[in-house]
Nucleic acid binder design. Structure first.
Lengths: 234, 234
DNA sequence: AACTAGACATACTACCGAGTATGTTGTCAA
DNA sequence: TTGACAACATACTCGGTAGTATGTCTAGTT
């Protein structure tokens, strides 16, 4: 049933669409190894719906239509699998805002574009982002191994660095007088929470188009910019 | 150490402050039974820091300085304990917005007051609210019993009804032309996410005053109102 | 003074799930 | 053709945790 579409030869085609909803294959290059893709996709979905702690490896295997053996062949432990998912999630984000970040546009405009791209990334890679959230939020009970602790720290560092990219643009925009806030730290928290919120309430509708998703992201971005008291849209 | 302050006679004094940080005893009346208070407080903290699934009953007992026996004497199961915490959390919220809700003030003002009260409740009863969040969000793995399913549904209904209270005021305010948005459903999601966000990032500072907390709530409220394009503050 | 019941602590069971050890199958190389 | 290895599946171990059964102590009652 979940049967192999004939796995014909061309090993080149890493980013085939598979059965998965999300296709981690959409990433830049060989960032995700062949054979990992499906597992990551399904794991991300499990982690999203049941949470890390409540997700058993057998759950993921079941969703894959296979058994634990397959997963443990590629990932050393449940935590390893989780980190892999979360790290891919962050890759998505960096890739998403990259272009806007580098544009020479004025700060507010850059901030707007980044916020929009970030939000859209939340929507379109939701299960991965949900895992990132859990990783940063719940400090992962049972990260016994020091290697895992290290990996968790790396994830948080990555998250912080990403957040920093936004902070700089916010300060620029504030210096321009384009936005204003009371406390920068809180303002940034509120901004991210709003932009991240689709992680929790977004539910893909059947027959939904890419433009529909962009519309949601646009509304979130508008809300944030208004919240930052950006020039009232005439 | 965690020792009993002399449990002298007056059984009337249900709402003594105890060792707990939160004191569920601050609730309206006999809503929380004596003997439940400390357990609920500690359970809420555990659920917040480790999450429901990763929290063992022994964890809660350890934080109480006692053993499982005490907990199972009052609560039938781990899920029961969790629901009790979450339900108390919702009680806090209803109590918090009650006054503002009934005031005859114009819609925007009412909305502002409710938002502020709600946000402050998130801050001041954080562990309980974090449990509410988990209950509504993660659909509670292993709610095997139909009674538990029922209880979870009841919690969600309670949450929805609470959310409805806000929706009405939002529509009123929109009709007054005091706020405007694109999609009401999304606008409400964004509003709540922003107001709820302290659940995740608030961290009580030593020597913090009630006014400090109100200030945070005020900034969140401002952000939301601006996001809803309420009249630009002059 | 014995009786009772509430409020726990202690000791035990049963199960689930992470991790492992080993078996099986297909594919490619020589 | 055979050997080797990747990619899994199957079968098992073992620790942690929810839940239970039972013991103990104290306060209050008659």
């Amino acid at each position: 049933m979940s049967a192999e579409a004939p796995t014909d030869g061309n090993a080149e085609t890493i980013r085939t669409d598979r059965t998965g909803f999300l296709a981690a294959g959409a990433l830049p290059a060989g960032l995700v190894e062949e054979g990992h893709v499906d597992i990551l996709d399904m794991a991300a979905q499990c982690f999203m719906t049941r949470g890390f702690a409540s997700t058993s490896i057998d759950d993921v295997a079941r969703r894959l239509g296979s058994t634990k053996g397959r997963i443990y062949h590629f990932f050393a432990s449940k935590a390893d699998l989780f980190f892999a998912v979360a790290e891919v999630g962050m890759q998505f984000n960096y890739a998403a805002i990259d272009e806007s970040l580098k544009s020479g546009a004025p700060a507010v405009e850059r901030l707007t574009d980044m916020a929009f791209a970030h939000c859209l990334s939340m929507i379109e890679t939701q299960p991965y982002q949900h895992s990132v959230w859990q990783g940063v939020e719940i400090h992962l009970r049972g990260s016994t191994t020091p290697e895992q602790r290290e990996r968790l720290n790396a994830l948080i560092v990555s998250r912080d660095h990403y957040s920093e990219l936004f902070r700089r643009v916010m300060e620029e925009a504030a210096a321009d007088g384009a936005i204003r806030y009371d406390d920068l730290g809180i303002a940034r928290q509120l901004m991210f929470m709003t932009l991240n919120s689709p992680i929790f309430w977004y539910k893909p509708r059947p027959g939904e188009t890419a433009e529909d998703r962009r519309k949601i992201a646009r509304q979130c971005t508008d809300f944030v910019l208004a919240g930052l008291h950006a020039g009232s849209r005439t």
